[in-house]
């Protein structure tokens, strides 16, 4: 099992990469909206992604179950 420091040493850069990919997706969507002159007819997936990030941004989680919370959250979308 990894120590707290080892956990960050091992996975920080991958998490950084994954967050940058999410940021790039949101930028890509905004650029597409600008080009098209309006948003997608159904923005529910975008809304779900933003809500998921709010879950992650909460500092206080009584137990380490963010993944479970997000899976339940994403199940709102078919």
């Amino acid at each position: 099992m990894l120590s707290p420091k080892q956990t960050l040493d091992t996975y920080y850069l991958e998490a950084r990469r994954d967050l940058l990919e999410v940021a790039a997706l949101l930028d890509r969507y905004d650029e597409a909206v600008n080009r098209a002159g309006g948003p997608a007819d159904d923005e529910s997936r975008l809304k779900v992604l933003r809500e998921a990030m709010e879950v992650l941004a909460q500092g206080d989680h009584p137990q380490p179950n963010r993944t479970e919370l997000l899976l339940e959250h994403f199940s709102k979308i078919n």
């Binding site: 991958e14 990469r17 940058l20 790039a24 930028d27 650029e31």
Partner: peptide, 17 residues
């Protein structure tokens, strides 16, 4: 790079911008 620098998709975003 797979992890540490620009990614393929971000590069395409840059190419489009």
């Amino acid at each position: 790079y797979p992890v540490t620098k620009c990614s393929p998709r971000r590069a395409v975003d840059i190419l489009e911008k």
